[in-house]
Design a protein around this nucleic acid. Structure first.
Lengths: 222, 222
DNA sequence: CGTTGTGAAGATTTTCACAGCG
DNA sequence: CGCTGTGAAAATCTTCACAACG
């Protein structure tokens, strides 16, 4: 693969790259200069064949018989993931979750500075969270213009989510992370990911129940 | 498919069932008695063929030419998902995120009552969040015994996560939802799901960058 | 008719297994 | 010799397309 190769990286692989990157940072801390696919697989919680296949989409950055140079792999992976630049984030909805996210300092450190907070509640507008002023959601276009806004986080109740998504898109935001427990529609060119806590628990519930013998059989005689 | 059929439901399908269930509740609110796969697909954000295939794993609960009876489908799906009973939850780590989760009332309402909060910090232990006492993490076995604890949520910093997971497993918890930004290992019989906010942002970053023309080409002449 | 349920085809993802290379 | 990189096989997931049936 050449340096300029823009061949499509499978979605499943893209979703694992950040996990590899985190593992590489851990291993770098621990001091190693190179790492084998076996070791990286262990840290990332996958198998070695998958690691090698995934990394091969980035290019041939390993050395046979030796492994991968950690520092160089971190560099290449960061570049591919677009982490060599900052991506300013706005959080819409400053309730429990929105505040927790705003207070969760790790975002800014990792290249996702929170440059805006929006809410609809007049009681919340005007307050500060982590030094960031909470503004009206009507100010979204202004915020987008002032800062090079690229990512929007929706942390509102479900009923407001679609309207917020529309406003984000109108303001030029082209990546959205949705925490509201509802489906939202966006234009094709906008990236959308969702995190739904209740759904994660329900998935666990399914498997938990299977362990306990499966769902109650409705026709059972008892 | 018979009522007692325990054929394996694909993981991908299981992960979508809660989304269908939410859509069904919405539609029930809106009043309809039956729903077509087409309409359910629209609400859930997938296509109709997938809906029909997914539902077929639960059984033949539709009526050709008519659709699915909403109430009955909700009943069957809830049963399969294990939502006809409560699954008590403990949250370990009462920092920003842990508190936000504890305050996020939707869990209890949806059958996942928070029966315990644990932390390692003596300053936090003894306080209450949403009426629940924060106890020492050493009390985990007691909490598990007092209440029929089944699900553990890890909301600690990364360095503490593995140790917390071990303690949860030791206390008999067999489903874990991990918010700590690190991989944790659990025995095979324990279900594990993870939510990592930073990773979601990095995945968005990847696609955001592609929109902007792809990663900087390191060999480029400028 | 209209919509489900489902084999079969197609696409994607994972895993295997080994040639290739340092 | 050891470990990567990768074709090929296997598994999983999605979509098609239509017979079956109320």
């Amino acid at each position: 693969m050449s340096l300029t190769d823009r061949r499509k990286i499978p979605e499943a692989t893209v979703a694992r790259l950040p996990i590899y990157l985190r593992s590489l940072h851990e291993e770098e801390q621990a001091g190693g200069g190179t790492i084998s696919s076996e070791r990286l697989a262990e840290l990332a919680g996958v198998n070695a064949a998958k690691v090698r296949k995934d990394l091969s989409y980035l290019g041939s950055y390993g050395t046979r018989g030796v492994g991968y140079d950690i520092e160089y792999l971190i560099f290449q992976m960061s570049r591919q993931l677009g982490l060599t630049q900052d991506w300013p984030v706005v959080i819409v909805g400053v309730g429990n979750l929105g505040q927790a996210l705003a207070n969760y300092g790790a975002f800014g450190e990792r290249g996702f500075p929170i440059v805006g907070l929006c809410d609809a509640d007049p009681l919340v507008i005007g307050t500060h969270v982590q030094g960031v002023l909470v503004r009206s959601i009507d100010d979204l276009p202004d915020i987008a213009e002032e800062r090079a806004l690229s990512i929007g986080i929706i942390a509102t109740p479900a009923h407001a989510a679609q309207s917020v998504a529309d406003r984000l898109v109108a303001a030029g935001v082209s990546s959205i992370l949705n925490f509201a427990p509802t489906m939202i529609a966006v234009p094709e060119e906008v990236s959308l990911r969702k995190v739904d806590l209740a759904i994660e628990l329900q998935i666990l519930s399914f498997y938990q129940q299977r362990k306990a013998g499966g769902p109650p059989v409705i026709g059972a005689v008892g």
